[in-house]
Simulated scan of single mutants.
Amino acid sequence: MRVVIQRALEGRVSVDGRTVGQLTSPGLVILAGITHDDTPAVVEKVASKVWGLRILEDERSASDIGAPLLVVSQFTLYAGTRKGRRPTWNAAAPGPVSEPLIDHFVEHLRTLGAHVETGVFGADMKVSLVNDGPVTIIIDSDTWQ
């Protein structure tokens, strides 16, 4: 699993001009991608890491202060750009594999106590945010071996 976490003062995702998820106060915008060998255990570990990551003001975590999270699925995090100019998506898991794992990621964050808003899986989404800092962190579970 690969996630890009952005500390944000504001965050919103819309589909067809309608807001479907937004931060209710300053928090984290999380772009999340799934690859072929990800499992529920992997996404739970990433969720726990995100929830406890001390990247908010005064080195606090979202769990410390109850900061909201906005999770947006994004298969393009697994773009292959090594050859040519056209990215490949071979490393991204297909929808039937990734959608349940993204849902599990969100549900596990909620189990940990997070207020989580989301985009719409597979939709053409417009994501806007005001990055605070700017602080942007990338977590890739493949690097944890």
Results as ranks from 00 to 15, higher is better:
residue 47 A to F: 08
residue 88 T to K: 03
residue 55 I to M: 13
residue 67 A to V: 12
residue 33 G to N: 01
residue 1 M to H: 10
residue 120 V to R: 00
residue 44 E to D: 15
residue 83 K to H: 11
residue 11 G to W: 03
residue 102 I to S: 02
residue 117 E to V: 00
residue 70 L to M: 09
residue 88 T to M: 04
residue 110 R to S: 11
residue 136 T to N: 07
residue 115 H to C: 05
residue 67 A to P: 14
residue 93 A to N: 06
residue 15 V to C: 00
residue 10 E to S: 14
residue 86 R to S: 04
residue 95 G to Y: 01
residue 4 V to H: 06
residue 62 A to I: 00
residue 113 G to D: 04
residue 46 V to S: 12
residue 61 S to K: 00
residue 140 D to K: 14
residue 84 G to M: 09
residue 112 L to M: 13
residue 83 K to E: 12
residue 58 D to F: 06
residue 91 A to P: 03
residue 74 Q to S: 07
residue 38 D to Q: 08
residue 124 D to R: 14
residue 141 S to C: 14
residue 63 S to A: 15
residue 23 L to T: 04
residue 25 S to V: 03
residue 124 D to A: 08
residue 87 P to K: 09
residue 125 M to R: 08
residue 89 W to I: 14
residue 103 D to H: 12
residue 77 L to K: 02
residue 119 G to F: 12
residue 29 V to R: 01
residue 6 Q to H: 07
residue 53 L to T: 14
residue 34 I to R: 10
residue 18 R to P: 07
residue 92 A to S: 10
residue 97 V to R: 02
residue 9 L to N: 11
residue 75 F to V: 05
residue 16 D to P: 05
residue 133 G to K: 03
residue 114 A to G: 05
residue 85 R to T: 10
residue 98 S to R: 13
residue 125 M to W: 04
residue 26 P to W: 01
residue 61 S to A: 15
residue 108 H to Y: 15
residue 43 V to K: 06
residue 96 P to T: 00
residue 133 G to N: 13
residue 61 S to G: 10
residue 144 W to Q: 14
residue 81 T to G: 10
residue 37 D to E: 14
residue 17 G to L: 06
residue 114 A to S: 12
residue 109 L to H: 11
residue 80 G to F: 04
residue 67 A to N: 13
residue 71 V to Y: 11
residue 67 A to C: 13
residue 62 A to L: 05
residue 28 L to C: 00
residue 47 A to L: 02
residue 72 V to I: 15
residue 94 P to H: 04
residue 101 L to D: 07
residue 41 A to L: 12
residue 49 K to T: 12
residue 81 T to K: 10
residue 144 W to G: 04
residue 31 L to S: 02
residue 40 P to L: 01
residue 103 D to M: 11
residue 94 P to L: 00
residue 17 G to Y: 02
residue 142 D to T: 15
residue 112 L to K: 09
residue 55 I to E: 07
residue 63 S to W: 12
residue 9 L to S: 14
residue 100 P to M: 09
residue 108 H to V: 04
residue 107 E to T: 10
residue 137 I to G: 02
residue 114 A to R: 10
residue 5 I to V: 15
residue 131 N to G: 03
residue 47 A to S: 10
residue 28 L to N: 08
residue 35 T to V: 01
residue 12 R to W: 00
residue 89 W to P: 03
residue 14 S to E: 09
residue 19 T to V: 15
residue 12 R to Y: 01
residue 109 L to N: 10
residue 34 I to C: 13
residue 68 P to Q: 13
residue 24 T to V: 08
residue 117 E to C: 09
residue 65 I to E: 14
residue 25 S to K: 09
residue 97 V to G: 00
residue 28 L to E: 04
residue 10 E to L: 09
residue 124 D to S: 13
residue 31 L to N: 00
residue 110 R to E: 15
residue 125 M to T: 01
residue 85 R to P: 00
residue 66 G to H: 01
residue 143 T to D: 15
residue 140 D to M: 00
residue 131 N to Q: 03
residue 34 I to T: 14
residue 49 K to C: 05
residue 142 D to F: 12
residue 9 L to D: 11
residue 119 G to H: 09
residue 102 I to F: 03
residue 66 G to A: 10
residue 138 I to C: 10
residue 19 T to F: 02
residue 12 R to K: 07
residue 131 N to V: 00
residue 64 D to R: 11
residue 35 T to K: 15
residue 139 I to C: 12
residue 14 S to N: 02
